[in-house]
Amino acid sequence: MSLKYTVGDLTIHRVIEQEAPFFPALEFIPGLTPEVLAENRAWMREAKALDDQDTLILCFQSYVVKTPHHTILIDSCIGNDKPRPQRPKWHMKTDDTYLRGLNAAGVSVDDIDFVMCTHLHVDHVGWNTRLENGRWVPTFPKARYVFARQEFDYWTAQNAKAEVPPFADSVLPVVEAGRHELVGNDHQIGDHIRILPTPGHTPGHVAFTIGRGKDDAVFSGDLIHSPLQTHYPELSMKFDVDQAQAAKTRRSFLERYCDTDTLCCTAHFPSPSVGKIRRKGSGFVCASV
Rank of each mutant, 00 (worst) to 15 (best):
S2N: 14
Y5L: 04
T6P: 03
V7Y: 08
D9S: 13
H13M: 01
E19F: 09
E19N: 10
A20T: 15
A20N: 11
P21C: 08
F22T: 07
F22N: 08
F23S: 07
F23N: 03
P24V: 01
L32N: 10
T33I: 06
P34R: 15
V36G: 05
E39F: 08
R41V: 11
R41G: 04
R45G: 01
R45S: 01
E46H: 06
A49P: 06
D52C: 04
T55D: 12
T55H: 09
I57P: 05
I57M: 05
I57G: 04
I57N: 07
F60M: 13
S62F: 00
K66Y: 00
H69I: 00
H70R: 15
T71K: 13
I72W: 06
I72P: 04
I72Y: 03
I74A: 07
G79D: 08
G79T: 09
G79H: 08
P83H: 09
R84M: 15
Q86M: 12
Q86P: 08
P88N: 06
W90L: 11
H91S: 09
T94A: 13
R100D: 12
G101M: 05
A105Y: 00
G106V: 06
V107C: 09
S108Y: 02
D110I: 00
D111V: 01
I112A: 01
F114V: 01
M116Q: 03
T118Y: 10
L120F: 09
H121F: 11
D123Y: 11
D123K: 05
H124K: 14
V125L: 07
N128F: 02
R130W: 09
N133C: 06
K142L: 05
K142A: 08
A143I: 07
V146W: 06
F147D: 00
F147S: 00
F152Y: 15
W155Y: 15
W155M: 08
T156R: 13
Q158W: 12
A160I: 04
K161N: 08
P165M: 10
F167H: 11
D169Y: 14
V171S: 04
L172F: 02
V174C: 14
V174H: 08
G178E: 10
V183H: 04
G184T: 11
G184C: 05
N185H: 13
H187L: 04
H187W: 15
I189S: 03
G190P: 03
G190C: 02
H192C: 10
I193E: 00
L196V: 15
P197M: 03
P197S: 00
P199G: 09
T202N: 10
G204S: 09
G204R: 11
V206A: 11
A207W: 09
A207D: 14
F219R: 01
G221K: 04
L223S: 13
L223C: 07
I224A: 13
S226I: 06
Q229F: 02
Q229L: 02
H231S: 14
Y232K: 09
E234K: 14
S236L: 08
M237L: 14
A244P: 03
A246C: 13
K248I: 11
T249I: 06
R250D: 02
S252I: 01
L254K: 07
R256P: 00
Y257P: 07
D259F: 01
D259H: 11
C264V: 15
H268W: 05
F269W: 13
P270A: 15
P272V: 01
P272S: 01
V274K: 08
V274D: 07
I277A: 11
F284M: 07
F284C: 12
C286M: 12
V289E: 13
